[in-house]
């Protein structure tokens, strides 16, 4: 199965899975964030291998650049960089591993023959800005405008949530 695969794909997949495992298992949240950034970089490299150059750059800018910096800022502002998480019992770990493993088993079994049914019809230059922009601004114009409204709502919501409120203090404490 792994015999005739190209080396770059194997190395990148190895890095991706290893750093994703470190995100999940690391005790220190800062290490989790850094490992997740590494995961996003290797996923961006996968996008380059898949001829999706625009998505590779956007993935780096949006995920590794913006979202992960947001996570890092929250971790540092809340001073959570030490290991404060109580140890869960092994039973939880076993149950979670069994659940995730069963999902893995079911999806791989369901998609075992999926590769044969995909009609291979590669088109050059599909992942460049020109082709994607033409699709985005013609057929997907309404969702594009709606995502602007979504961002406005998210911005208003996070400002409202982040504001200091004296009333809420009695409710949760």
């Amino acid at each position: 199965m792994f015999n005739n695969l190209p080396i770059p794909f194997l190395v990148l997949s190895f890095f991706t899975i290893l750093s994703a495992l470190y995100v999940v298992t690391s005790k220190n949240p800062i290490h989790s964030v850094l490992a997740l950034i590494l995961t996003f970089f290797s996923i961006s490299a996968h996008y380059v291998l898949l001829n999706a150059q625009f998505l590779a750059i956007v993935n780096l800018i949006v995920y590794a650049g913006a979202i992960m910096v947001l996570f890092l800022f929250v971790l540092m502002l809340l001073n959570l960089n030490k290991d404060a998480e109580p140890i869960k019992s092994n039973l939880w770990g076993i149950a979670a591993a069994i659940s995730a493993g069963l999902l893995l088993l079911v999806i791989t079994a369901a998609f075992q023959k999926a590769g044969e049914n995909v009609v291979k019809h590669p088109v050059e230059g599909i992942g460049l800005v020109k082709a994607l922009g033409q699709t985005l601004f013609t057929r997907f114009l309404v969702p594009f405008e709606l995502s602007g409204a979504l961002f406005l709502a998210a911005m208003v919501g996070s400002v409202l949530l982040g504001k200091r409120d004296k009333v809420n203090k009695d409710l949760l404490a």
Binding site: I17, A20, V24, A97, I107
Partner: peptide, 23 residues
């Protein structure tokens, strides 16, 4: 398909296993 299924399962395992909300 296999690679993204493995990644998704790792993420699901983390959601089930971890308690820290940021993680």
């Amino acid at each position: 398909i296999y690679l993204s299924t493995v990644l998704f399962s790792i993420g699901l395992f983390g959601v089930l296993f971890r308690r820290n909300a940021i993680v």
